[in-house]
Design a binder for these strands. Structure first.
Lengths: 149, 149
DNA sequence: ATCTTTATTAGTAATCATTCCTATTATTAT
DNA sequence: ATAATAATAGGAATGATTACTAATAAAGAT
């Protein structure tokens, strides 16, 4: 059973591990995975545990300090909540890029009017081909036309 | 190594299993999981395999006939691509609702201009509280105020 | 209609991200 | 400083998904 206590904890401690994990996310633009964060910190924090990374990522998410990104790849990526922004995922290389267009709060209002639900936020992800993969595709198509593949 | 052949298959066979799996998705509004589809079809298809469901969901997704929805719950939900629409997920009960506002193709164009990437589609998900959970929350807060919890 | 090719299947084992468990440690309030 | 307990390390367990393999069945060719 999920109780209020489970959802909105009132006492968090400020551990070195949690600080470092948030640090990594704040100072990273690559939307790292839990394992990537673990391997990065493990070098200095010799006895860091992978479970600790996962637990803290969950807690930081609960506290609203980070986002979890799910992309159908079988694992999550994480992103520090600094300024709100959108994401682009290249369907070919799977890289993630931040899209810097101002958050459209009016979308929330619109959906709130239509549904009557309380809308708190939205997540907008664009899919397509990044510059590099666009070029690769073009080159590849040329090769196919010329029977080189 | 990922080759062209891996990505864009040219010959698909039309099996009963694949038809039925797509059928379930087309005739369902509940965004089912792989396991839910498996258990539903297993009743009639006595020796259906869970692996077959997963394989076909991947193939149907490759063919662009269905979407995979990832919500950070540890498992995927699937949705037939009929008319394009957006989604709402209740942060409390985790139910998914379709949001019927016309697809905003202009967002793709905008991001295409900003980034130079080729934008093919976007996914827009709203988060908040559905009607039912809105009520529950209100009642809950009242109880907390009155020291009943 | 039969033959051939090979995509697909059922069944099961394996993988891998994530969560759970427990004795120990470290943070915070008193 | 002490007490209370949140958090940790390490390892085991879970559970969704994928991989493997011999047998089957679409779909085109004869």
């Amino acid at each position: 059973m999920i109780t209020n206590k489970d959802k909105d904890k009132d006492s968090y401690r400020n551990t070195k591990q949690r600080q470092k994990i948030l640090d990594v996310l704040v100072n990273s633009k690559s939307h790292p995975t839990a394992d990537w964060i673990y391997r990065k910190l493990k070098k200095k924090f010799r006895n860091l545990s992978l479970g600790t990374v996962y637990r803290n990522l969950r807690i930081l998410k609960e506290k609203g300090q980070i986002w979890e990104l799910n992309l159908g790849t079988g694992f999550s990526r994480f992103d520090a909540v600094s300024h709100s922004h959108y994401h682009f995922i290249c369907s070919s290389c799977q890289n993630i890029y931040d899209i810097k267009i101002p958050p459209m709060k009016e979308l929330d209002d619109r959906v709130m009017q239509i549904t009557g639900f309380r809308i708190l936020s939205h997540r907008l992800v664009f899919f397509g081909l990044c510059d590099l993969c666009k070029l690769k595709k073009k080159k590849n198509n040329r090769n196919i036309r010329n029977n080189k593949v």
